[in-house]
Design a protein around this nucleic acid. Structure first.
Lengths: 196, 196, 196, 196
DNA sequence: CATGAATGAGAGTTCATTCAT
DNA sequence: GATGAATGAACTCTCATTCAT
């Protein structure tokens, strides 16, 4: 029965996700997963041949589960500025979250790949975010809320700054206040109420 | 012989540095280092008890070796804009460099620490850079080259963006053009020749 | 349904035969057989509890299928020398054949048995061949084609030499020319056209 | 100290030899060897990376240790017939020996190689024996003890027969009487006292 | 009868770490 | 100080075998 099997795979994926969140990528062994899932060694191999395969599936699940909150907000015809604010708020929550985040594991995984080019997940996430922000900025410019000459460059810039915040949060640590300052700084460029 | 001993330690450190550059942090074993150094297993333990200890010493050496080019340029009384341009150029080179960089190992090491707060190296590097940039901006504002209301926030912002570029380069890959665009974008805020 | 069941068993046997031919005896796992047969793991166990059991059944099938060509030739009242020539030709083909032969698996199986005495298959094959050759020699002697004082010893000797060729072919390799030379050598003793 | 290390390697080799004698080739695991040697898992890997490597070294040792009895007998200027008799006696002892023989393991190893051609050990042994026998026959012919038209063919034939006896002994079993008969049969060809 | 998910024993391999020399 | 042999824990991975459905 494919269904039962798929449910178990799903279970393993979800359990493994927690393990990756807790331990990162490189520190996770098949044994860790086996123990977390409370299944047998061989049982795990029935579904996944390596932590890499497992992690990739976790990431895939991750991409499928997210991105919805957005389309929702957008279709709710909130103002671009509001939506962007929402987005930044979301990012802030994500990057301040200590538990329940795959960020570290994802970076670690990326580092482990021979060529960065091979790692499509992070790039896709990034590109997708850039596209959304760019669209929001353009909408905002049209509605007069935003001032921006090059929405694409601005969007990319925002994402690089956020990426910088993310990695900083996970490596050197960061305070909520610092994040807020940065987020405001990012918005201030677009609002352009004053010259800078 | 403290001296001879210190020379050997130095040798191990430098050789290990190359290993960390090549393989990152987590992938390096004591065995790797022993082989790279062509010394005995026991010999290595005489100086370092773990790859962590070794890596920390490599980082320490790293901090000591750098940071000098700058003070130099500053004392050469070049214009702040030039120096900042130089700094960005330096960052660009660093982040596009595929070989000969400890960036990945350093991040990996940071991830491996229980609390980000424990990892002083990255934070120190970051803070130092922020301080320098901030100082440059203030000088530039005073000389009329730059326009900036909050030099500290601007400096921090620059560093977060750079950090974002760095991690992106190592995970998703990045083109030189993209880096140039970002760098120009960062400068454009300060020059303020036009409203944005 | 005994019949349906027997047909399936037959199918497994035949498929497994190919696997044994390809991989020998010890290298074959129940998994290999399951995969080759495209049946379920449990399904296989319904018929065979181990590769040993399976191999024994393959061998049994083998004995049943062969030995017929001969009785045929004999009853065709060809001359003993011709029939023996035919037999040697047959052996030559068999031992030069790289694919489609159970020779290696059979030896491997025999090695795996605690006591050689337990392995009746090879001995039976051998005895049977000796008997046939002996009979042929006796017929040839009677008809004046062969010269031989001790047909039984001669027959056994032939078979040992052939066995030697067989194992040599599978272990060190052998050329067709070498086989031909040996076969001629074996015949020359019986023909006795010249003193040796 | 290379010496100490070599002594240990020697010890492992000798101990492993016993294991191969007892269990054949394919049945031997690194664990078996570790236990027989009473050393640690890692300790064995320090010297040998696989049972194959180990077995090859055992075989190499084997070739070095043997072959001496012969040259000795030859230089003792015994008659060719005596030496050949001695050789056959030796072979008889070897093939009847149940314990203390690597024959099975060697065959098993040979079967396990992809191409029989790769397995030089058996072929070398065989060739060497053929050469020696051939030389003896030629000497015997010259001295009038033997009658033989084609010493090379005769030598090869003897070896194939012996090979056949060997494998038969290990697979179907063989009695001492049968071996004696065969050996006599082989000698009778050379002595040529009667036509057969 | 048949399936295939699940188990767990066991083989292979690698390394951090110690210690006699 | 320095060596490198030795240990043993930890991991990866594969199958024979069972059993609920």
């Amino acid at each position: 029965m494919g269904k039962k099997s798929e449910r178990k795979k799903q279970y393993i994926r979800e359990t493994a996700r927690k393990v990756f969140i807790e331990k990162g990528y490189k520190n996770v062994t098949m044994k860790d997963v086996v123990e977390a899932c409370q299944i047998s060694r061989g049982g795990l191999y029935l579904y996944y041949a390596s932590t890499q395969e497992l992690f990739l599936d976790v990431l895939k699940m991750e991409s499928e589960d997210t991105g919805d909150t957005f389309s929702e907000a957008i279709s709710n015809n909130a103002s671009p500025a509001d939506i962007l604010g929402l987005f930044l708020e979301e990012q802030k929550k994500e990057l301040l979250r200590k538990e329940d985040t795959l960020v570290v594991a994802t970076y670690e995984y990326a580092f482990d790949q021979e060529k960065p080019e091979n790692d499509t997940y992070l790039r896709n996430q990034f590109q997708e975010a850039v596209t959304i922000i760019e669209r929001l900025i353009m909408l905002g410019v049209r509605s007069g809320e935003f001032v921006c000459r090059d929405p694409h460059a601005a969007a990319k810039h925002m994402m690089y700054a956020i990426e910088g915040l993310k990695i900083s949060a996970k490596t050197m640590g960061i305070t909520e206040q610092t994040v807020d300052e940065e987020m405001n700084y990012l918005m201030s460029f677009l609002v352009g109420d004053d010259e800078e």
